[in-house]
Amino acid sequence: MALGTIGNSEFDRDTAVSPRERDGGRGVYDADLSAGWTIFGAVNGGYLLALLGRALGDALPHPDPFSVTAHYLSASRPGPAVVRTELIRAGRTLSTGQASLVQYAPDGTEVERIRVLATHGDLGALPDDVRTTAKPPALPPYEHCLGKDHGPAAAVAPEISGRLDIRLDPATAGWAAGAPSGRGEMRGWFGLADGRPADALSLLLAVDTLPPAAFDLGLNGWVPTVELTAHIRRRPAPGPLRVSLATRNLAGGFLEEDAEVWDSEDRLVAQSRQLALAPRGA
């Protein structure tokens, strides 16, 4: 099988948007949400972020997502969708816009699924200086981590797991055997199954595709995202990505989840925080 490339891969085809009309600072796009990126029948939130990021990258003067805040209003389902974008402000180095994805109920009623406010820029124009105390996650070698053939990833989401190459750190995969650590952590290697290299759009996918850190607390079931903010910090270097998730506070039926994505040059390339509903019965 030929390896996927940026612009020619399953991910690119499934996040494609077709311009329908433009009116000044507004643009409308048609999309088809693929069933291959679902979890328990609902379309994955990171996949939706990438699709909306692609639409905004076309609609705004600047191509790359820098900061994206998404509110998930209802569960998206596979099938046709409409994305409406609006330019809010265009500056020399940054532009800000919003996007809304809607689908239609059987009776024809419009249902808004997700609304995004985003700032875009040009990642290629950023200076190369780095001053940080952040450190990449300590992961066992790729071949010593647990892939979908070992159970955890495929057991959680068989549809989306076939499109991803995720290898979980065994230290954070005890939940799959009924022995969670209780620390609320998840770590693993991340890539796309067809080998497509990482870029800014796939980073939006990466922050929301590992099994939830809540599983490491011994919680089972769907962990729906209420709100997610992602920051894309630089274009990733070639090679696999490392992703770490952590949650520190579950209260009132909600929990936060913080994510970091690191590239092969030990650069922090993406960060996110989301507020999610704890699984029922937690």
Rank of each mutant, 00 (worst) to 15 (best):
P65N: 11
F66E: 12
S95M: 05
D64W: 06
G97A: 10
R92Q: 13
L49K: 05
H71L: 13
R89K: 15
A70M: 07
E86I: 01
D58N: 07
Q103G: 05
G79T: 00
T85W: 01
F66V: 15
I39E: 02
A75M: 11
G91E: 15
L73Y: 06
Q103M: 09
T93Q: 14
Q103F: 03
T85V: 10
T85F: 00
L49G: 05
A81L: 03
S34W: 04
W37K: 08
T69M: 14
P78K: 08
Y47A: 07
G97Q: 08
A35Y: 02
V82K: 07
A75Y: 01
L52Q: 04
E86D: 13
L101G: 01
L94R: 14
A50K: 03
A99M: 10
D58M: 10
I88N: 10
P63H: 09
G79K: 00
A75P: 07
Y47G: 05
R77D: 06
R92C: 00
P65V: 04
P78D: 06
G45M: 06
I88R: 15
A99C: 11
E86F: 01
P80E: 13
A42K: 10
D64Q: 06
A75N: 07
L60I: 06
G46Q: 08
A81D: 06
G97L: 09
G97M: 10
G41A: 13
P61V: 08
P78V: 02
L87S: 11
R77F: 01
P65E: 11
A50S: 13
Y47M: 08
L87N: 03
S76D: 02
F66A: 15
A70S: 15
Q98T: 15
R89V: 12
G36A: 15
N44G: 11
R84D: 06
P80D: 12
R77Q: 14
G45D: 04
I39G: 01
A55T: 08
T69P: 08
G97D: 07
T85M: 05
L52E: 02
V102P: 00
A55I: 06
P80Q: 12
G91T: 14
T96V: 15
P78N: 08
S76V: 05
T93P: 00
Y47T: 02
G79A: 00
A35M: 00
R89P: 03
V68H: 04
P65I: 08
S74N: 12
V83Q: 03
A35G: 04
N44H: 10
L87F: 03
E86L: 13
A90H: 07
R84M: 09
I39M: 11
L101F: 04
A75Q: 13
T38F: 05
R89S: 14
V83F: 06
G36Y: 07
Y47L: 10
T93M: 09
S34T: 12
